[in-house]
Computed example of a mutant assay.
Amino acid sequence: MRQLKLRLPLLLLALASAPALAEETPSIISPEGEHFTLTPVEGGFMRLDKRSGAVSFCTAKEGVSVCRLGADERAALEAEIERLRAENARLKTAAAPPSTLPREEDFERALSFTERFLRRIMRLFREESSNDGKL
């Protein structure tokens, strides 16, 4: 709804700024189902996006059309892009698997247990081998 409020003043301004031109030249309306409606205005034409309601001022120079969004629409688009970036970052953080690697302290503790175990096993083997020779 807020976007509609932002676009409505631009559309009214565009229509009010070129009433004489609009009376002389009929509007160029895209066929039903098309995405844009074009209306000639002084210095170019206004392009209305029929799906989003965005209004752009377009000019044609050297066979190339250049369209610029109104300031309100540009600010709304930039705000939406920033919101989506923040949401994307939040979702990436939430989806990242937690680290499964042990902490340094955990690693050192496990290594200490392993070392003690191996020393005890080696001592038992030495004792067994020395007892085998006595029998």
Rank of each mutant, 00 (worst) to 15 (best):
A20I: 01
L21N: 09
L21P: 00
A22T: 09
A22R: 15
E23D: 13
E24K: 11
T25E: 08
P26S: 11
P26C: 03
P26N: 01
S27E: 06
S27M: 05
S27Y: 03
I28F: 10
I28L: 12
I29C: 05
S30I: 02
S30R: 07
S30H: 11
S30D: 03
P31Y: 11
E34C: 08
H35Y: 09
H35C: 08
L38R: 08
L38H: 15
P40S: 03
E42S: 09
F45A: 15
F45D: 01
F45Q: 12
M46W: 07
M46A: 06
L48I: 10
K50D: 14
R51E: 15
S52W: 07
G53N: 04
A54V: 14
V55S: 12
V55H: 11
V55N: 02
S56E: 15
C58D: 12
C58S: 08
T59I: 11
T59C: 03
A60D: 02
A60M: 01
K61R: 14
E62T: 11
G63R: 09
G63T: 00
S65R: 11
S65W: 04
V66P: 02
C67S: 08
C67V: 07
C67K: 13
R68Y: 06
R68I: 10
L69S: 12
G70L: 09
D72W: 06
D72I: 00
D72F: 05
E73C: 07
A76S: 09
E78P: 03
E78A: 07
A79D: 10
E80I: 03
E80H: 07
R83N: 08
R83I: 04
R83H: 10
R83C: 02
L84S: 02
L84P: 01
A86I: 13
A86Y: 03
E87P: 05
N88P: 10
N88I: 01
A89W: 05
A89S: 13
L91A: 14
K92D: 15
T93V: 02
A94M: 09
A95D: 10
A95I: 01
P97H: 00
P97I: 01
S99R: 05
S99F: 08
S99L: 01
T100A: 11
T100I: 13
T100Q: 13
L101E: 15
P102C: 07
R103H: 13
E104K: 13
E104G: 05
E105F: 02
L111A: 13
L111Q: 02
S112C: 03
F113I: 06
F113D: 13
F113W: 09
T114R: 15
T114Y: 12
T114N: 06
R116K: 15
R119N: 00
R119D: 01
R119Y: 01
R120G: 06
I121N: 11
I121T: 00
I121Q: 00
M122F: 02
M122P: 00
M122A: 07
R123H: 04
L124A: 11
F125V: 15
F125M: 07
R126K: 12
R126Y: 11
R126T: 01
E127S: 02
S129C: 12
S129M: 14
S130Y: 08
S130G: 12
S130L: 07
N131E: 14
N131R: 12
